[in-house]
Design a protein around this nucleic acid. Structure first.
Length: 284
DNA sequence: ACACGCTCCTGAACGC
DNA sequence: TGCGTTCAGGAGCGTG
């Protein structure tokens, strides 16, 4: 599933064919994904030029010279596929193609999303800061402004456990289930630890690990970008080896203990009961 | 103001 | 073999 590093990979793959290029037309094959497509999609995008593209958290923001921005989210299963006109790539429509970007140079970019948790919405570029998805975002892990002081301060005010706090997009924006699990494991913190009880020193290590893990994954994504056309022709998701995510029942790489899966906030958490101790309770 | 749990959706992975 | 059931997940939103 696309998390921050995958979105970064996708936007880097899209930039060469979209940034500073003109959109002839955006075609949609249904009314909506998670939300309805913008009613004024044609008016704001037809014959417009893409003047900027930026990843904000897990959102792809496409800024047009009409003064509007398109906001794309990949949800669970969203994929972009590029068909290059210059390279004579034949467009092959497949099930769940929902949005087709016809560029004026003949390139075609298709958004496909089987589960339709993704979306494409728009707002005026000058009103991005007030857009409901973008307005409440915390600090991105790739941003130097994400410091241990910031996280420590936020966590001091937080009553919830570490897993929930790290998933809170208004504190750190862009961290998802996978990288939260990995960061807690690398820092040897139990997912049930109450956020406010974690010492500043430990938060410092946690902050370092969050940045490390995200940067490693972005780097891994970048290295696969060279041949972004996988057998399906879709771009973006690279295989990555995780220490705990999805590995319940398997052995911890550190201590060989069995990795457990618990549910927190309705979502799976994977952790090693031996490596990851609760600071306060020192329990399993 | 916070913390839950529900909701959207499909396909993969099971179980009988 | 083939059916039915369960589950996964981002994030807004409604409820308690």
């Amino acid at each position: 599933m696309p998390e921050l590093p995958e979105v970064e990979t996708v936007i880097n793959g899209l930039k060469p064919v979209m940034l500073n290029k003109k959109i002839a037309k955006i075609e949609t094959t249904r009314k909506n994904l998670r939300y309805n497509f913008p009613e004024n999609l044609d008016a704001i995008s037809k014959n417009s030029k893409i003047i900027d593209m930026q990843r904000l958290s897990k959102y792809i923001v496409i800024r047009l010279d009409t003064g509007y921005s398109l906001i794309s989210h990949l949800g669970m299963s969203g994929k972009y596929t590029i068909f290059s006109y210059a390279r004579n790539e034949k467009i092959e429509p497949v099930k769940h193609d929902h949005v087709i970007f016809h560029m004026d140079n003949g390139d075609t970019i298709i958004y496909n999303d089987p589960r339709r948790f993704g979306f494409l919405i728009s707002c005026k570029t000058e009103e991005e800061k007030n857009e409901k998805h973008l307005s409440k975002l915390g600090i991105d892990p790739t941003n130097d402004k994400l410091t241990d002081e910031y996280i420590y301060d936020k966590f001091q005010k937080c009553k919830s456990n570490l897993k929930i706090a790290l998933m809170n997009q208004s504190i750190i924006s862009g961290l998802g289930n996978i990288y939260v699990c990995e960061a807690m494991h690398r820092t040897k913190l139990h997912p049930n630890t109450i956020s406010s009880t974690i010492p500043h020193k430990t938060i410092k290590t946690l902050t370092k690990h969050i940045k490390e893990i995200i940067n490693e994954a972005i780097k891994a994504g970048g290295s696969t970008l060279k041949d972004y056309k996988n057998p399906e022709g879709a771009m973006g998701y690279f295989q990555h080896n995780f220490d705990v995510y999805g590995r319940n029942g398997e052995n911890c790489n550190e201590c060989q203990s069995e990795i457990k899966k618990i549910i927190q906030g309705g979502r799976s958490t994977f952790y090693c009961p031996k490596c990851q101790k609760d600071i306060e309770l020192n329990n399993d």
